[in-house]
Structures are given as structure tokens and as C-alpha cells.
Design a protein around this nucleic acid. Structure first.
Length: 885
RNA sequence: GCCCCUGUGGCGGAAUGGUAGACGCGGCAGACUCAAAAUCUGUUGUUGGCAACAACGUGCUGGUUCGAGUCCGGCCAGGGGCACCA
């Protein structure tokens, strides 16, 4: 058991690395020398530019371990690229608008503005303690009027360019609090504060026409070769381009519309002969029309509307249908009609808000058909079966099937389509529909336009004025920014802007008559869709300064959580295109390189009453191999639970400030980079943190412990190195080359392992002569420069201890000597029938026949062959020999 | 429900289709110490064996290959996203 903490104040202070003193000292040196201030003269100085960016934080009040991980990873690259001679831009800002500030205002009677700026001040101090190589001169918050005013200017340009529209959409409505709820605020279909079942409401809202850019955004993904494949796949699926058909079903008996044609979209026109019903969204115009004089249908729609607006809620809700009694005429089968249902799983936002259903070949349709006892007509059968087998398959599926057949196959029971495969049948069906004038081939996207209106105070006001005579009128540019009023109240739910006594009352800029200011604010995703461009020239009097953005963009390497893989990144890509088209940017893709890092997890703990207990309040002992947790305050029993993402609700958080106070920032940084690959989740453990801390001390001892073993600084390389010294040089140069490669490829956990290997080699080395001392100094200097991007403060302290006057941060990245990287001989494995039997050390350049002969001569190999005939010998030079018998 | 990802010793993980377990944590043994901490040295996948060594072993299952942790098919489990959380 070990519950004690290492003390930084040591009885032998001169021998221990004192992070608490060293870290602020070096941070001050960097700040005084303005080391990380970025100058815009990339071209003039001849240094290539490199723009490193991490997703900027929401100012919640305190940094968490996720921030430490994110910003450490980015910082390693920023420092490394700087050492490689790049002119690095590495800025920081604040994604400062959003709901938590309003929640705080309601709960704690503070103003969102004060709360936000206080949080920023606190978090800035915390971030600075991590020792990040950031140009703080470029800092801004999205709630600064200088920022959101420029955002309003951008919006007006988008409006003029036709990228903006206004249309109806549904929101979650809390009928008790009379307020719009975010999906997050809907818990099990009820409002999070009132507990009342949510309703849906239609509101007229502002949209950015991102779906007009669908094809462009899709094509752009192919150019992003430094993005993770999974993110590109997710975006592709999100955009969801699908080729299909629009089909018109004539519907009889619609009041006042004798020729009513129901337009549906389908990706499977080949299954039209298997249609057994049509289904409308509860929000389809025809549904609404029918409901006008049908109380039962009204009740059904109301029931559907009790589900929240999220796709997850809709898709997982039990399928419900309402038979309208209307009949739709089948386009291909004369005299055949299909019942028309209203169904809760049909989304108004996708396709045309109406479908035809083929239960045999769509799982949702099948579930629905079984529930409402509708026919199941198989029209596709698996290939490569005879007619009898296909008939048997169809009969079974129709009668008892619970799994729809969605694979490829051949059309059956489908008149003129019979015998065609799915692709050909689709084509033929579309041609027929077009010939009949009952439909056409079309392309549909899953991607919907981006609703940006929010009925909230703490966001960027939408710069528009509503006039009864003139309609929606843009706020004249001279009147920007439209500032948020400070005198607002949060004593009741709803939008404080809307109930402000004077703010919304303005005169129409066009006709001068009394008009009403738009009281909606922007979705905060708008703020984060262009901040990377603003960092290039944060004080420009236009949204962007083209000289600056043209030279800095795109961002060379962007780091952030994988949870942003779709929305934020897609919106930023859209914004960049829209800014390109309106002349604000030269580029169309904002992020040339993207890396999505994993989360920081921790064990969870609960006391006897099931209450969550934070890690800082417990002690862990190991008794008989089992880990037992107790509460520090009273020794009460604590159950160790699952390892989960650090979250306030489960209290399994570790405060970075505590870790930095205890061990120093370098230890926290080192631990974040060790062990787990950066794209995967990492588990924070005390033992891991202590291990990292011990390594900082070990580096310090290695560097300062044996001064007599080191050649004086600047000594020339002695000509006659002995084998041991040469060996150390090889290890050092190989470690440097491997680590450089690992950092370039963002494999920080492997980079850490290389450093351990080098440290182990240096520890084991005892210089026997001047050559050895020279080699040891070289190895130590490499070690210090190699750790510098990861543990910058320790590196500076060590670099100074090695006698250098120029800080490590201003020292060029060393380059490994290629001659020291290659070995003369290689060890290769020898297999018999794929099973390793022995290994063989042989000259690196030995030819295939020599290797084969040597392998077959090995005693163990001979034994394994056991006198059998050798059929084949596979020799992969430098890798392996496989003898096949 | 849909889309995406992950699964390897006691633990975190390493491994361009080519010697599975680098490196770290933890454990065990030893050195130093009055003792402890710190530090250093050795050892550590499992099973059998004094040992040499052998067999087994990368969630399950089937396949491709001279050779599969890696590629393909089908499962299982965990995680992320699902458009108003950021």
C-alpha cells in the first residue's frame, strides 16, 4: 500500500528536480523573451509556416484532464515544428457563448457575461501553468463584441450570397416553462426542470443552406488525406448521398383534391411490386390537412409529438401507425391500391416526408407490417438458387419472416423486372416510371440544412430586423455589431432578449417605421466555424485579413475530440466554402491535417449509500492482491466501479491544478503522452502519475548525477571510440531517428518508449575513456532535446545544467547520423510450416541462397523437418525464413 | 434503431501480412539502510518440467495465405455520434 505522496521539498534539495520552482521560472523566461509570439513574416524570414490548432475550450470554469491531453498533444507538435525551423502559429481562444452561462445565471443569480469572463480568467491562469507554447497575444473569446460583430458581418454576406434561408422547423417545447428545450434538456421525453412531457412546436427559423453544398462537401473529403479514415467515412454517411427515385402515387378521396398525387422518395424502386402500404410523416402537409377535421388523427399526431426531436428518440420509439382510410394507386399494377398510414418513424426532414413500404426488404417496414397485419410480399430472392428454392424462400419470408432480406439478389414476383439483379431492376423501374410520367430518378441527401436560430440570450444576435412592410431587413453594416444588452433578467425561463423592454424595438432601416429586432441568437457552432480564420488576424476590422489568412491557412494540424467528428468539422468545412465564395478566404478546406484524440477516463467510486465519491477523498490499499477503497475522512467502505469518462456527475474527476501543484506540469504532460496511443481513451491512475513523476527525477539524476563522466561542452568528436562508446552512439542516434518519426506520425506513446530505451542505455553505460565521456554527453544532450517538446520545463533545466546558455526551446532539432542507424548483421526467425523453430544471425546483405542454406543447417530446424521432404523455402530478406514440408 | 470505432499478459500497451508481448505500471527476489522511503540489480504470458525444452496463447467463429493480432465473412461485448450539450 502507498497512500503517501512524494514531497517536492526534499531533505537534499540540490539533488532533486524542483518542478514547483523550475516551471514558473521558465514560463517567465519564455514570456519575457516573447518566445512564442508569432510574427506574420513567414515568407520574408524564409521559414515555412505551420499552423497548429487544438479545438478551443468552452470556459466552464476549470480546465479538466481532457484539456490537458488535448493541449499537450498540440503543444508537442507546436514545439517540435518550431525546433524544426517552422514559423509556427499556435493560438488559443474561448468558445464562450452557450447554455451553461445561462444556466449559471438562473441558478446562481450571476450575469452570463461576468460568469464567462471570470471563468476565462481562471482557466487562462490554469492553461498557462501547463507551459504551453502559445501566442497569447492572439487570444479572443467568441463573446467579445469584436468577434461576434464580425460574425454578424459574415452572416450578412452569406445572406446576400443566397446561403441563408428562413423556414419552419420543429423544436422541443416545454409546456410548463414555456420555453424551447435543447435535446440534452429532454430526459425520457420530459423537460429537465419542469418534468412535464415535451411537445413539439413549429417555429420559423434561420437556416444556412448547407445541403446546397452537399456534393461539394462530399467531394472535398477525398482531398483530406491527412484526416482519419473513420471521420471521412462518418461524414460521408452523414451527408448520405443516395440515388433513388421520386414516385407519384395517385391518392383517391382527398377532399378538394381529386387528382392528388402523393410524392414519395425511395432508394429501392426495384421493390415496388412488393409495396404493401404508404406512410406519411405526422408533419406531412397531407397529414395536417386530414387532421383538420379528424380528432382521432389529431390525437395520434399529438402522441407522436410527445417524442423528442432527436433522431435517436424517433428511431428507437415503438413504431406507431394510423390508417387514414385513403387508398394510393399502385403505379405498375392497374386497379391495385395500397392503404395510406401516418407513421411516427417517417421523418418530414428526409426525402419527401412520405414513403412506400416494402416489408419483405426493409426491417422497419417489416416490423410495422407485422404489427398492423399488412401483407409481406417478397420481390427479391437470393441469387444462385433455382426457381423452386426462390419460391420456397419467398413463401417462408412472407408467412413467418421476422428478418427483412436486404441483400443483393434477383427480382421475383415483379412482372417486367423478374430476373434482374437489384441494380438493373432499379434502373429499369426508374425508366418505366419516367416513361409513364409517374416518377423520375433522383438523388437525395440525408444532410439537412443547418438550423442556426436559438431562442436564447447568451449568443450572437442575428443581425436582422423584421418590418411589417419590408419583411426581413438586414441590419445596415454601419450599425454592427448588434450588441447584446447587459440589463437582462434570468428570474424566469424563456428568452430574455424577447422580453427586454426596449431592445427589440427599432425602426426599420428601409422605411423607418417601427419594426422588431430579431431576438434569436446564433447556434454556438456558428462561432466555432470560423475562429481558426480569425486567429490569423484577430484584430482585423473585417472578418478576415486576406494577407494573413492567405499565408496561414489551412490549419496544418488540428487536434480535438472525436466527439466532434461530424457536426463541428462539417460546419467548419461548410463555412470555409461559404467564406471562400464571399471572398473572405482563399482556401476551401480549413484543416489539412486532423487528429482526433481519445477521452480521459477514471475509475468510479461509490460509498455505502450509493453516492459517488471523488478520487481525492479516498485511499486505496491492496489486500491479498485485491484493491480495497476507503473514504479518507472516516474510513467508510467504498466500492470501486467501472472506468468511465471523467465527468462531474460521477465525480470521477482529477483536477489538473492539484496534479500540477503536486508533481508539476511536466509530469502531467508526460503521463498524458505515455502508454495509451493518443487516439484511444486513456485511464488516469495515481500509479501512472507517480511513475511519470519518478521519470522526471530520473532524467534529472541522469543529467546531473555524474558530471565527471561527461566531456566538456563543445569538445570535438574523438577519432578512436571504443565499441561501448560507439554502441551508445548507435542507440542515441537510432532513438533520435525513431522518435522523430514517431512525433511526425503523432505516435507519442511510442516516442515515450524510445526515450525510456535511451535513458536505460545511458544508465547502463560507464565511460571508460574520453571517447566514452564524449558519447555520454552526446546521448544526454539528445535525450534532453528529445524530451523538450513533451516536458519543456525539465528540458530547459537540464539543458542549462549541461552548460548551455541558449535555452533548449531555441535550439535546433538534432539530426541523426545515417551511418549510425544501420547494423551490419540481422537476426531473422526461421519457421517450419509457419511455426518458429529457431533464429539466425547473419550478414545484413547475405543473399537468399546463403540464408536458406544457413537456415536448413540449424539443428532445431533439422529436427522439426524430421526427415520429411522440403517442398518450398520462403526467404524474406532481413525478416524471416519459412520452410514448408 | 442507424453510422463509426475498439477488443492482445495482473494492468496501460508494442508489433510495413513475417520471431506476439517493445516500453511503462504492478508483482516477486536481492543490494543499500538500524529501519523505512527513495534508488539500484535481477526476474515476471499460461501450463507441464530440476532443466534443456515442449504445448497453448491476441473477444468468439469460419475463411484467404507458405505464414493472420494484422486481410475477408458472420457473431459477441464496450465506447463515440445521431443535427438545440459543447
Amino acid at each position: 500500500m502507498r497512500t503517501d505522496r512524494p514531497t517536492i521539498m526534499s531533505p537534499r534539495p540540490n539533488e532533486r528536480y524542483n518542478a514547483r520552482e523550475a516551471e514558473p521560472k521558465w514560463q517567465k523566461v519564455w514570456e519575457d523573451q516573447r518566445t512564442f509570439r508569432t510574427r506574420d513574416d513567414a515568407g520574408a524570414s524564409g521559414r515555412p509556416k505551420y499552423y497548429v490548432l487544438e479545438m478551443f475550450p468552452y470556459p466552464s470554469g476549470r480546465i479538466h484532464m481532457g484539456h490537458v491531453r488535448n493541449y499537450t498533444i498540440g503543444d508537442v507538435i507546436a514545439r517540435y515544428k518550431r525546433a524544426r525551423g517552422f514559423n509556427v502559429l499556435h493560438p488559443m481562444g474561448w468558445d464562450a457563448f452557450g447554455m451553461p452561462a445561462e444556466n449559471a445565471a438562473m441558478e446562481k443569480s450571476v450575469h452570463p457575461k461576468g460568469w464567462t469572463y471570470d471563468n476565462i480568467a481562471a482557466m487562462r491562469t490554469q492553461l498557462k501553468a501547463i507551459g504551453l507554447a502559445i501566442d497569447w497575444d492572439r487570444e479572443f473569446a467568441t463573446c467579445d463584441p469584436e468577434y461576434y460583430g464580425q460574425e454578424q458581418a459574415l452572416f450578412l454576406d452569406f445572406l446576400a450570397a443566397g446561403f441563408v434561408s428562413r423556414k419552419k422547423s420543429t423544436v422541443n417545447w416545454d409546456p410548463v416553462d414555456n420555453t424551447v428545450l435543447a435535446n440534452e434538456q429532454v430526459i425520457d421525453g420530459c423537460g429537465w426542470r419542469s418534468g412535464a412531457p415535451v411537445e413539439r412546436r413549429e417555429l420559423t427559423q434561420w437556416f444556412l443552406n448547407i445541403s446546397d453544398f452537399a456534393d461539394d462537401l462530399l467531394a472535398g473529403l477525398d482531398t483530406l488525406d491527412r484526416w482519419p479514415e473513420k471521420v471521412r467515412t462518418m461524414q460521408r454517411n452523414w451527408i448520405g448521398r443516395s440515388e433513388g427515385a421520386k414516385v407519384f402515387f395517385a391518392v383517391d378521396g382527398v377532399e378538394g383534391a381529386p387528382d392528388y398525387k402523393l410524392e414519395i422518395f425511395t432508394t429501392r424502386p426495384d421493390t415496388l411490386f412488393g409495396a404493401s402500404f404508404c406512410a406519411l410523416s405526422p408533419h406531412h402537409p397531407l397529414t395536417q390537412k386530414l387532421a383538420a377535421d379528424n380528432a382521432e388523427l389529431q390525437a395520434f399526431i399529438k402522441k407522436c409529438d410527445q417524442i423528442g426531436t432527436s433522431e435517436e428518440a424517433i428511431e428507437t420509439a415503438e413504431k406507431m401507425g394510423f390508417d387514414t382510410g385513403l387508398k394510393a394507386r399502385h403505379p405498375f399494377i392497374d386497379g391495385h391500391t395500397l392503404p395510406v398510414y401516418v407513421a411516427n418513424f417517417v421523418l418530414m426532414e428526409y426525402g419527401t416526408g412520405a414513403i412506400f413500404a416494402c416489408p419483405a426488404h426493409d426491417q422497419r417496414d417489416l416490423d410495422f407490417a407485422r404489427k398492423y397485419k399488412l401483407p409481406v410480399i417478397p420481390v427479391v430472392a437470393p441469387k444462385d438458387r433455382d426457381a423452386a428454392a426462390q419460391a420456397a424462400f419467398a413463401e417462408e419470408l412472407a408467412a413467418h419472416g421476422t428478418d427483412a432480406f436486404t441483400g443483393d439478389g434477383v427480382a421475383i414476383n415483379s412482372d417486367f423486372l423478374n430476373g434482374l439483379d437489384v441494380t438493373a431492376a432499379k434502373r429499369t423501374a426508374i425508366a418505366k416510371l419516367e416513361a409513364m410520367g409517374l416518377g423520375e430518378g433522383t438523388i437525395n441527401y440525408r444532410l439537412r440544412d443547418w438550423g442556426i436560430s436559438r431562442q436564447r440570450y447568451w449568443g450572437c444576435p442575428i443581425p436582422v430586423i423584421h418590418c411589417e412592410a419590408c419583411g426581413t431587413v438586414p441590419v445596415p453594416r454601419a450599425q454592427l455589431p448588434v450588441l447584446l444588452p447587459d440589463d437582462v433578467s434570468f428570474d424566469r425561463p424563456g428568452n430574455p432578449l424577447d422580453r427586454h423592454p426596449t431592445w427589440k424595438h427599432v425602426d426599420c432601416p428601409k422605411c423607418g417605421k417601427p419594426a422588431r429586432r430579431e431576438t434569436d441568437t446564433f447556434d454556438t457552432f456558428v462561432d466555432s466555424s470560423w475562429y481558426f480564420a480569425r486567429f490569423c488576424a484577430p484584430n482585423a476590422v473585417t472578418p478576415t485579413d486576406r494577407t494573413a489568412t492567405d499565408s496561414w491557412l489551412p490549419v496544418d494540424q488540428y487536434f480535438g475530440g472525436v466527439e466532434h467528428a461530424i457536426l463541428h468539422l462539417l460546419y467548419a468545412r461548410f463555412f470555409t466554402r461559404a467564406m471562400h465564395k464571399t471572398g473572405h478566404l482563399d482556401v476551401e478546406e480549413p484543416f489539412a491535417g486532423l487528429f482526433t484524440q481519445g477521452m480521459v477516463n477514471h475509475e468510479t467510486y461509490r460509498d455505502a449509500n450509493g453516492q459517488w465519491v471523488p478520487p481525492s477523498e479516498i485511499a486505496i490499499e491492496t489486500v491479498g492482491g485485491a484493491r480495497i477503497a476507503k473514504r479518507l475522512s472516516d474510513g467508510g467502505p467504498v466500492t470501486i466501479g467501472a472506468i468511465e469518462k471523467m465527468s462531474k456527475s460521477k465525480k470521477n474527476t482529477v483536477d489538473p491544478e492539484d496534479i500540477i501543484a503536486q508533481y508539476g506540469a511536466d509530469t502531467a504532460r508526460w503521463f498524458m503522452l505515455s502508454d495509451s496511443p493518443p487516439e484511444r481513451d486513456v485511464q488516469w491512475t495515481d500509479a501512472g502519475a507517480e511513475g511519470a513523476w519518478r521519470f522526471t527525477q530520473r532524467v534529472w539524476r541522469l543529467v546531473t548525477g555524474t558530471p565527471d563522466d561527461l566531456a566538456p561542452k563543445g569538445t570535438a568528436l574523438p577519432a578512436d571510440l571504443d565499441a561501448a562508446a560507439l554502441g551508445l552512439r548507435r542507440v542515441a542516434h537510432q532513438a533520435l531517428a525513431a522518435l522523430t518519426d514517431d512525433i511526425e506520425n503523432l505516435r507519442f506513446n511510442r516516442a515515450v518508449a524510445r526515450i525510456y530505451e535511451l535513458a536505460n542505455a545511458i544508465s547502463a553505460f560507464n565511460p571508460a575513456n574520453a571517447g566514452g565521456k564524449w558519447a555520454k554527453r552526446e546521448a544526454l544532450e539528445y535525450l534532453v532535446l528529445m524530451i523538450a517538446p513533451m516536458m519543456p520545463h525539465l528540458a530547459e533545466e537540464c539543458w542549462a545544467a549541461l552548460g548551455h546558455e541558449t535555452p533548449a526551446v531555441d535550439t535546433e532539432w538534432p539530426v541523426a547520423d545515417k551511418a549510425l542507424l544501420v547494423e551490419d548483421s540481422v537476426t531473422i526467425a526461421v519457421q517450419v510450416n509457419g511455426k518458429r523453430r529457431d533464429e539466425l544471425t547473419i550478414a545484413r546483405d547475405a543473399d537468399v541462397e546463403t540464408v536458406e542454406r544457413a537456415a536448413l543447417a540449424l539443428e532445431k530446424v533439422e529436427k522439426a523437418i524430421d526427415g520429411k521432404a522440403v517442398r518450398k523455402v520462403i526467404v524474406v530478406p532481413g525478416k524471416i525464413v519459412n520452410v514448408v514440408v
